[in-house]
Simulated assay, not measured.
Amino acid sequence: MLKRVIGALVGREMDRRDGSGGMKGAALGWAAGSVLRRMGPFGTALGAAYVGKKLYERRKASKRRPL
């Protein structure tokens, strides 16, 4: 179940690049989840690291903005 959640988060992050949303993000999330599941524990760690990196970058960028 954790791998599916990570796959969904990876798909969401990949879809945010183009900003259109919708079916493309769901398809990318499903594909990323499938690939990560096939890779076993390494794939789970890789997907979690990708999502963590994106969250860290977003938080860092939001702190830089002046009020």
Results as ranks from 00 to 15, higher is better:
10 V>Y: 06
9 L>A: 11
47 G>S: 05
30 W>R: 01
29 G>P: 07
50 Y>S: 01
17 R>E: 14
47 G>L: 01
38 R>E: 07
3 K>Y: 00
34 S>G: 13
8 A>I: 13
55 L>Y: 05
27 A>D: 00
9 L>T: 04
17 R>A: 15
10 V>G: 06
32 A>Y: 04
37 R>A: 14
4 R>G: 04
46 L>W: 06
3 K>P: 01
58 R>T: 11
33 G>Y: 05
21 G>K: 10
65 R>K: 14
63 K>M: 07
28 L>V: 02
54 K>I: 15
23 M>G: 06
65 R>G: 09
35 V>S: 08
21 G>R: 14
52 G>S: 10
2 L>E: 04
43 G>Y: 01
49 A>V: 02
63 K>S: 08
57 E>F: 10
28 L>G: 05
16 R>D: 11
35 V>C: 13
66 P>E: 15
30 W>M: 05
3 K>E: 12
10 V>R: 08
36 L>S: 08
45 A>D: 00
59 R>N: 01
10 V>N: 14
11 G>Q: 12
25 G>S: 05
1 M>T: 05
56 Y>D: 14
29 G>Y: 06
19 G>S: 10
66 P>V: 07
62 S>Y: 00
67 L>P: 09
50 Y>T: 07
59 R>D: 02
7 G>F: 01
26 A>G: 11
50 Y>R: 03
4 R>Y: 06
22 G>Y: 03
6 I>Y: 01
26 A>Q: 04
14 M>Y: 14
5 V>L: 15
